[in-house]
Design a protein around this nucleic acid. Structure first.
Lengths: 110, 110
DNA sequence: GATTCATATTCCCGTCAAGTCATATACTGA
DNA sequence: TCAGTATATGACTTGACGGGAATATGAATC
């Protein structure tokens, strides 16, 4: 079982994920956009699929791949303890605000 | 020039970074806490140093290593386009992803 | 200057992963 | 059924990486 970081170490896999972040794609579409052999695309997709980064649905002869968020969420979570190293020097005030933090999240609400 | 993701693919290197996130350490301290041979620690530190993840200052015979934020910031930035997949509508995402992406399937005709 | 401590570097080896080529599987339509 | 399209898999080669042992560098203390 590979770590999510090991999966992301491969540049072509990151490219595939970036394309899928824009919109779901079939294997052939990825093949054309990345200009890489179909067998390579399929193998990388297999790795990404088994690691939970993507999932496929069958559509006639095509397989349409789309993103799954969980593994990237793990990576995002791993970064958490490090964020203070670049949010702190932006403004120390931010830490104060963190400590108060009684405010519930309010965005625009409908 | 290695990508930051390739550097983070190694579990021991991630452990080193996590320790350094808590506080700066000498090589010997890392060696003891991670229970790994000194030669391995030094080699990983070299990789981390050359990739800009850490920097060392000399203190008598010791070298004290500390974090540098830039490469991890890059990783954080790479994640940005993916965050909408889990920050916006987490529950809607879990039900059906295609509902939040109603873009028509075909772009171009030939 | 020799010794000791702290760290870095070099060499060798096993492993593993990515690329390529060839082939296999699956679905569609005539 | 056959032909054609779309994707997956297998075998093989090659190159890179991590681990370990031995060794080198370099500062501090005597």
């Amino acid at each position: 079982m590979e770590s999510s970081f090991a999966i992301l170490a491969e540049p072509n896999r990151r490219s595939i994920l970036s394309l899928l972040a824009a919109s779901e794609c079939s294997v052939g579409e990825l093949e054309r956009q990345l200009r890489m052999p179909q067998t390579s695309v399929s193998k990388h997709l297999r790795v990404l699929r088994e690691a939970g980064f993507v999932e496929a649905r069958v559509e006639a002869q095509k397989r349409v791949y789309r993103l799954r968020p969980e593994p990237l969420m793990e990576v995002d979570a791993w970064l958490t303890p490090f964020r203070r190293f670049w949010t702190a020097h932006v403004d120390a005030l931010e830490r104060h605000l963190d400590q108060m933090d009684p405010t519930p999240k309010k965005g625009k609400k409908r």
